[in-house]
Design a protein around this nucleic acid. Structure first.
Lengths: 136, 136
DNA sequence: AGACTCGTGCAATTGAGTTGCATTATTTAT
DNA sequence: ATAAATAATGCAACTCAATTGCACGAGTCT
């Protein structure tokens, strides 16, 4: 269990530290997207800045992706597929519940998108809001 | 021209003030989404807080919509269709250019989205990033 | 015109995001 | 196993967007 966490870090050329192991494990355990504030509440033993930099290093190495939102703190979700610093593939749908506020990464993939000629697509983010299965 | 601006405000039960007229006109003139900072730069004569509350009142009355983004200041776009405080219909695509940073509201509509059973959709936001027609 | 309601400006606060630097821990090579 | 190299951590401090309270001024209704 712990060793699989470590291999995630090793595979992404990141040093193995307590903070990083705890954060990855927390993301694996939770189904929902998490904000830096969530991590601060969960892990009082780590400094805000350490968690901030942990999230950033996970973003850069493609372990996490950042989910666009309208207000409040940024939220992060585990990448379902293999992401590299060069290429992020986020073809799953983000669902934001208007009741409980949680943001989930659904397994459903985003449909094909067409943009006018002259526009070149590099990434697509689909955020659906409504009522989640728990609150319904 | 000016009277059509006023009717927009009247239709949404908002009082007619210089600041609101200027802001609406600016949004109508610009094709891109705008941030509060953009308005502050354009309209030095109005206080930051006034512009902040102007944006908020426009949001509440359905004149503008807020565009989810990953970082930086929130951006706002004119609602293409008739939006009310109760129901916002944002079925157009937002395109964020990774070169110039501008966010546009495209006319293209978002494709149908499917979510797992138990989930109820209230709104959909599709943000595509890449290179815009100007930068391509 | 007068009363009422709402918008505005100023001052101040919060909170997320970010950086520099000294210290500590992890890794690599000996 | 240990030392050198390199990276992570904690602390302090800072920036900036977002937000609130309050007094004042402008818009609206009869």
């Amino acid at each position: 269990m712990k060793s699989s966490l470590k291999s995630i870090l090793k595979d992404h050329n990141l040093r193995i530290t307590d903070c990083r192991l705890d954060v990855i494990q927390f993301f694996l355990k939770e189904r929902n997207a998490l904000s830096q504030g969530d991590l601060e509440n969960k892990f009082k033993q780590y400094d805000r800045v350490t968690l901030y930099r942990t999230l950033n290093s996970f973003l850069a190495s493609g372990i996490l992706h950042k989910i666009p939102n309208e207000n409040g703190a940024a939220t992060y979700g585990l990448c379902h597929h293999t992401c590299t610093p060069q290429r992020h593939v986020h073809d799953h749908i983000h669902f934001k519940c208007n009741t409980c506020g949680q943001i989930e990464c659904l397994d459903d993939t985003v449909p094909n998108v067409s943009v006018p000629s002259g526009y070149q697509i590099e990434g697509v983010n689909l955020i659906v809001d409504g009522i989640c299965a728990n609150c319904n």
